[in-house]
């Protein structure tokens, strides 16, 4: 479970990127985090993952406070950033082994899992090449494989489906569903509203740093008294200034 309590963040100046955010992401659910560009999604995810310091409020992941117990909190989640352009000089297999060392994955499990995951995503063949030579989608796949390798309770995925081919996209969505079915947490941000409609149990919409809505899809339709698509709802919500 993830909990945001009165979380506020501002960059230089007075404008608050995130303002008094209160949000609970329960276990066993796929939680979609939506908002227009510049709404505060990335800032929220960066605070959640310990990349940005929090100005006010607390964030807990499986009851570990990310500010007070960063190491324990970080061990419980896996994070796929929006841009997979990292560790480019390492070979695919070297990156996965590095992740294995960081998350203390026993050698015998590691071999089996790396082989399974990378074969599923179709990158097994290129594991001996530097990540730099991979396409965007392949880089995304190796980062996702890294997260799945240490099998954390909480998945935090920032635009995880961008650049994936339909087969891999389908696989990842299946894996997300499976993870939630096991009673674990999936928190992901996306711009693709069709994916949210297909996949999410719950959604939150953030705009100008403030939470506009959180709840189940049906609640949202009910609240705004419309039978329209999520796209219409989204536009209506984020334009209500």
């Amino acid at each position: 479970m993830i909990q945001f309590q009165n979380v506020t963040k501002s960059y230089s100046g007075d404008k608050k990127a995130v303002d008094q955010l209160n949000l609970t992401i329960p276990d066993g659910k796929i939680f979609g985090f939506l908002g227009p560009n510049g709404a505060g999604k990335s800032t929220t995810i960066k605070m959640l993952t310990g990349i940005l310091p929090i100005d006010e409020g607390t964030i807990t992941i499986n009851s570990f406070d990310i500010s007070k117990h960063p190491l324990e909190a970080k061990k419980t989640f896996g994070y796929v950033p929006d841009s997979p352009n990292m560790f480019l000089r390492l070979k695919g297999i070297e990156y996965l082994n590095f992740i294995g060392d960081v998350y203390d994955i026993p050698t015998d499990q590691r071999k089996e899992k790396i082989e399974y995951l990378t074969k599923e995503f179709g990158i097994y063949e290129v594991l001996n090449d530097a990540i730099q030579t991979y396409s965007h989608g392949m880089r995304q796949k190796v980062i996702v494989s890294g997260v799945l390798l240490h099998d954390p309770d909480v998945w935090i995925l920032d635009e995880p489906l961008t650049g994936l081919d339909p087969k891999s996209s389908y696989k990842l969505k299946e894996m997300m569903r499976e993870h939630a079915r096991k009673g674990k947490t999936v928190f992901f941000s996306t711009h693709v509203l069709e994916v949210v409609e297909q996949l999410c149990d719950q959604v939150a919409i953030i705009n100008n740093g403030k939470l506009e809505f959180t709840g189940q899809m049906d609640d949202m339709r009910e609240k705004f008294n419309t039978e329209g698509s999520l796209e219409q709802l989204f536009l209506e919500l984020t334009n209500h200034e």
Binding site: I114, Y124, A130
Partner: peptide
């Protein structure tokens, strides 16, 4: 990028190291 299709030899490449050394 040049993509040489080589099958990784997973057998010899999965070794555990301390975080510092890794």
């Amino acid at each position: 990028g040049g993509k040489g299709k080589k099958v990784a030899n997973i057998e010899t490449r999965t070794s555990s190291r301390s975080i510092l050394w890794s």
